[in-house]
Computed example of a mutant assay.
Amino acid sequence: MRTRVVRFAEWTRPVPPVTREIASALPEDDEGRPPVLFVPGYGHAAWAFAEHWLGRAAARGYPAHALSLRGTGGSGASPVTGLRAYAHDVVQVAAALPRRAVLVGHGAGALVVQHALARYPARAAVLAAPVVDGWPALGAALRANPLGTLPALAGGRLRLSRRQLFGPDLPEEQAAAYVSRVERMPARAQWQLVLHRAAEPAVGHPPVLVLGSPDDRVVPRSSLDRTASRYGGAPLLFPGMGHDLMLDARWEEPIDALLDWLDKETAL
């Protein structure tokens, strides 16, 4: 497949600008390492990475940034939402960084990153617990949390449970605090998790790492395998963790593995 050069919708229906919330953690000396841009899944915002992963990445020498998608966190609301608008925001933020960035998408943010990669020549990409195969994810959500999932089928709010997001080791009080911060997403954005066009090929074919948990109650193991196989590899797995790898009790393990991989893939 060839990368599209002209996209008719970009000319006839441009994405309106919004203010964008960006959380950052910078090392004292990045030694030329590429910046890392974290993209949260639906309902989450930059805070989900600012909690642990931004600081960890900066401590390892990587300039680290996290974006709140439009309408979430401190980013401005917009009448236009969905994959095209979200991917546009990611590309705009990445293009403003001083060097070609590594894009890291979590959950539905991985789907956004896939679409952004068709428009931005990333240095590398990481898809963490990626929600890119909508129907399997919907089936898993219905089995794990039917009461929180069924309203979304009629345009209502998708409510993710503590059991879906976290493993058993995270203290209940901390889990409840995180769950309370998960925001409602527009119905259009929710439906696009299931009904969306496949992403176009990535510009420049950057290396892509897929990581997740075999115990994730949002993303089935089979989906992790399929996604990783599209990029010629196998998923890096963290048993015992839930969907929110960046907030769960053993959050250090996936981010350290991610950064170890980046050290090798982006070595100068």
Rank of each mutant, 00 (worst) to 15 (best):
residue 191 W to Y: 13
residue 208 V to D: 00
residue 201 P to H: 08
residue 215 D to E: 13
residue 208 V to A: 00
residue 164 Q to A: 00
residue 193 L to E: 06
residue 137 A to T: 13
residue 218 V to N: 00
residue 203 V to G: 08
residue 194 V to W: 08
residue 171 P to F: 08
residue 213 S to P: 10
residue 147 L to E: 14
residue 165 L to N: 01
residue 171 P to T: 10
residue 203 V to K: 12
residue 217 R to Q: 12
residue 199 A to E: 09
residue 200 E to W: 11
residue 139 G to T: 15
residue 209 L to H: 03
residue 197 R to V: 12
residue 221 R to V: 11
residue 219 V to R: 00
residue 147 L to M: 14
residue 147 L to V: 14
residue 220 P to Y: 01
residue 214 P to H: 03
residue 139 G to R: 15
residue 187 A to I: 11
residue 190 Q to F: 14
residue 133 D to V: 03
residue 211 L to D: 01
residue 219 V to T: 07
residue 186 P to G: 03
residue 166 F to H: 07
residue 142 L to P: 00
residue 209 L to D: 00
residue 178 Y to H: 12
residue 135 W to C: 06
residue 190 Q to N: 15
residue 160 L to V: 10
residue 200 E to R: 12
residue 149 T to P: 02
residue 147 L to W: 13
residue 137 A to I: 06
residue 163 R to E: 15
residue 155 G to H: 11
residue 165 L to I: 05
residue 142 L to R: 01
residue 206 P to N: 02
residue 151 P to D: 08
residue 149 T to H: 02
residue 137 A to K: 02
residue 177 A to T: 13
residue 174 Q to I: 15
residue 182 V to L: 12
residue 193 L to N: 07
residue 186 P to C: 05
residue 202 A to W: 04
residue 158 L to N: 01
residue 220 P to W: 01
residue 141 A to W: 08
residue 144 A to S: 11
residue 188 R to M: 11
residue 162 R to E: 08
residue 142 L to I: 07
residue 209 L to I: 11
residue 189 A to S: 15
residue 176 A to L: 13
residue 192 Q to G: 02
residue 149 T to Q: 04
residue 172 E to F: 13
residue 142 L to W: 01
residue 183 E to M: 10
residue 192 Q to C: 06
residue 163 R to W: 13
residue 134 G to M: 07
residue 175 A to K: 04
residue 184 R to K: 14
residue 218 V to R: 00
residue 210 V to N: 01
residue 174 Q to W: 13
residue 185 M to Y: 10
residue 156 G to W: 06
residue 189 A to M: 14
residue 138 L to W: 05
residue 206 P to Y: 01
residue 148 G to S: 10
residue 153 L to A: 06
residue 217 R to P: 05
